[in-house]
Simulated assay, not measured.
Amino acid sequence: MSRAVIAPQALVAIGGRATRLRAEDIRVGASKSFMVSGRRPLLYWCLKSLHAAGVRRLLLAGNEPVHLRKAEAVLRCAHFEFDSVVYVQDAGLGLHGLPAQLTGLLEDTVLFEAGHGISHPRHYQAMLARKTEDNVVFSAFPTNPGNPRYRVLVDGEGRGYPAFGPSKRSGLGLPLALAQPMLIDRRYVELLSAFDYTVDRIADHYLATGRLAAVRSGLPVEFDLSGEYRVAMGWYRLSLAADPAAERPWSSTELSPAGPR
């Protein structure tokens, strides 16, 4: 009998400066979380999917007061409710150090998500099912040569292996890029300072000790560059237009990572 999957608290980063997108002349507004698809901010679709996955406790962190005000407005207009929502203005010292800044507000296990990223509820549930007491669970996406994200090989059980070097394993397909959403815990947060709050270094640690897990995603990676942005927004527009009455940020559980055709 499989164990019941209980959704934890979600920490959602809603701030940031979107420096690379702005440098490529993409209009961002307050932050990427409030860019619009389907007449709704991306944060709305992100929170709707988390809610559908069973998450009921939220911690929303932005580095400017406007981020928090806009997030409150998103939730006021939503057709779903969370049991607990905490708004925090962080110090703006970087995304991956954010859990360490907010450690006093975090539960033992936390879904760490970007407010402009959208994942299917089943993706979050698959991450929860793969979590153990001592691992960390990333999301895995097709790689983009223009954005050197951390890369691993992933087997059928979701175990991560080095993508390069003498330990590279055969038969696991192409390397995949790790990104948010992540499923982290207190041990992960405690290790952040020892690895200079650098996600690649802490991923190295978990990979070397055989404690890095990943769940492949069929939706696009949360975007940093204009190319990633266009692919993601193309999928979001397609999926939202497919069933606007249902307000679903997905049209299928079997989405192609190549983007809409």
Rank of each mutant, 00 (worst) to 15 (best):
R27T: 08
E113Y: 00
L93D: 09
V137E: 02
Q89S: 09
A242F: 13
S256F: 03
K48A: 10
H123W: 06
A213K: 03
G210C: 03
V86T: 15
A30D: 11
W250F: 15
G173R: 06
A126Y: 00
L153E: 02
E64L: 06
P148L: 06
P99G: 06
A214Y: 00
E24G: 05
E222Y: 03
E228Y: 04
V221A: 12
A100H: 12
R17D: 10
A30S: 13
H123N: 09
G115A: 06
A78Q: 10
P220E: 11
R27L: 03
S239Q: 04
N144Y: 08
R122C: 08
R151C: 12
V12M: 04
Y44R: 06
H120R: 14
F223Q: 00
E81A: 13
T19S: 15
S170L: 13
T103K: 15
P260Y: 08
R216P: 00
Y229L: 12
G94D: 07
A129V: 03
P145K: 08
S170K: 14
N135W: 01
A177Y: 05
K168S: 12
M182D: 01
P260F: 09
D196T: 11
G104I: 10
R248H: 12
M1V: 13
F223L: 01
Y236E: 03
T109S: 12
A53F: 07
R159V: 00
R186S: 12
Y44V: 03
D25Q: 14
H79W: 04
I184P: 01
L176V: 11
A4V: 14
G54K: 12
Y206P: 00
S252Y: 10
A53W: 05
A73C: 03
R40Y: 06
V152L: 07
T103A: 15
P244C: 10
H205V: 01
R216K: 14
I26K: 10
C46V: 01
A163Q: 03
A61H: 07
G15N: 09
R169T: 06
R22L: 08
L68K: 06
P99A: 07
V221L: 14
L60V: 11
R261Y: 02
Q180A: 11
D200E: 10
A10I: 06
T19C: 08
V66S: 10
V136D: 01
F112P: 01
E113Q: 13
N147E: 09
A194H: 15
E113A: 13
G117N: 11
S139K: 01
M233T: 11
T132E: 04
R201M: 11
R69V: 07
R56K: 13
F195N: 04
